[in-house]
Design a protein around this nucleic acid. Sequence first.
DNA 1: AATTGACTCTCCCTCAGGGGGAGACTCTAT
DNA 2: ATAGAGTCTCCCCCTGAGGGAGAGTCAATT
Lengths: 268, 268
Amino acid sequence: MFSIGEFSRITTLSIKALRLYHEKGLLEPDFIDMKTNYRYYNSDAIEKARVITMLKQLQFSLDDTRDILAGYHDDGDILDFLEDQKSKIEEKYLKLKNISDSLNTLITVEREVKMNFAASQFAVEEKNVDDILVASIRYKGKYDECGSRFSDIGKKFGRFICGKAINIYYDVEYKESDADIESCLPIRKGFDKDGIVVRKLAGGKFVSLIHKGSYSELSASYSKIMDTIKEKGYQITGPIREQYIKGPGMIFKGNPKNYLTEIQIPVS
Amino acid sequence: MFSIGEFSRITTLSIKALRLYHEKGLLEPDFIDMKTNYRYYNSDAIEKARVITMLKQLQFSLDDTRDILAGYHDDGDILDFLEDQKSKIEEKYLKLKNISDSLNTLITVEREVKMNFAASQFAVEEKNVDDILVASIRYKGKYDECGSRFSDIGKKFGRFICGKAINIYYDVEYKESDADIESCLPIRKGFDKDGIVVRKLAGGKFVSLIHKGSYSELSASYSKIMDTIKEKGYQITGPIREQYIKGPGMIFKGNPKNYLTEIQIPVS
DNA sequence: AATTGACTCTCCCTCAGGGGGAGACTCTAT
DNA sequence: ATAGAGTCTCCCCCTGAGGGAGAGTCAATT
């Protein structure tokens, strides 16, 4: 016969837990002193406590544990319980996996943004851009519809996205509505799906400028980049792109003053 | 201004949750009627509620959420929080993954046992056994030491184990103590490690008998299998093996009457 | 106005699996 | 006999809500 303290040391279950298990009917002391209410356990209870510990490690609830202890004595007989528990646990861990992935994406994106922010000079640059594989939707409409297009693409290609969103403007002049826009997300690989086209954006020589601030102030940066192009005597050879390095975040909308947008104009 | 019911419908947060968030200082109503105590929210709170929903999906605690809401307005500024949360979530995920794996192992093992039990005739059989890759420890001692050997091997090769434990008895006669025993666990792959030897058990022609019941009653089954060998005029060509198809379970010790042990004797 | 039905308020209980601590006994060894 | 360690019950606490009681309010219809 062991007092609760001794039994606690033997089983590595806390005294509090032992009292709870007694109350819940999982593990009853062999003998209770009527006068003092002291609990005394015998050595049979050690084996039972071991089983409880195992089931606890497998995260069975106390209720399940009680039922299992009461009705079964062989691993093979609790297969149904085990399978139930497995599917519950599996569900939970898949959920956590998703959350972990989301957090990872967020962290990676924000880290990149910081790097970009630190490195950028906010000056007009010339650079050679590689071909980019993208999933894209081309549509006619308003500029601010692109958000829902990006999220459509995001839903279908989520795991394969590997870069920041790009809009390509096919109109020569600015159009408030009925603009001809292609919204693209860079992807690692993929195929046409549900009206979303997978294609390669041709690289080449580009003049680019990172614009810092709200989208409504983009025109100033456009003037600046166009001035440079004229100055250097370049010819524009294709539609203008905007790449959204930092816009509203996943969690916070953020401060538009810190948004970063890269204007990319193909030239020769 | 929205009443709590309207605001609840807009944000898909329950009224109960909104009241909790108010109490905890996460999301305060814009105005509270002094007389009625009715809560009224304005449209700014919608954005805040969206942020709360996002953070909730990422399983941030209400306390963290409160702190984040109070002090930050940009995804990039909460990188530390995100990384913290990621490691917490990852830890939980790994724990659940382990539990799920354990459950899987248990389930698989018990299913196999059931199949075996259903299929076995408890009669002496002749069969050809393939080579088996095992992790093994050979020692001199008592029979019942093998349990701790198996658990030693199990700890080192856990994920690679792919079959039931085997003991190989190198003594010709029965020895109470100082017996020469090799305890083996079949593995998919692996290398020598911490005194555990990885090697191939040679296959070949075996006479086998599945013994049902306690280990202490094995002798009856040994008589039976030896009689058969003599009858058929076979020669024993190597050490005898015992494979433990069903012994004490991971959770329950189970009833020894249902233990299954396969005696395997190599013959020519 | 008055009524009615839908809302909303606060307060308390519940969940799981205990932990912490108070205040009162009790055991064991010296 | 006494001290110190052990144990008892009872109550509150944690998370992130949900359920429900009982009372008070709002808005629309008669």
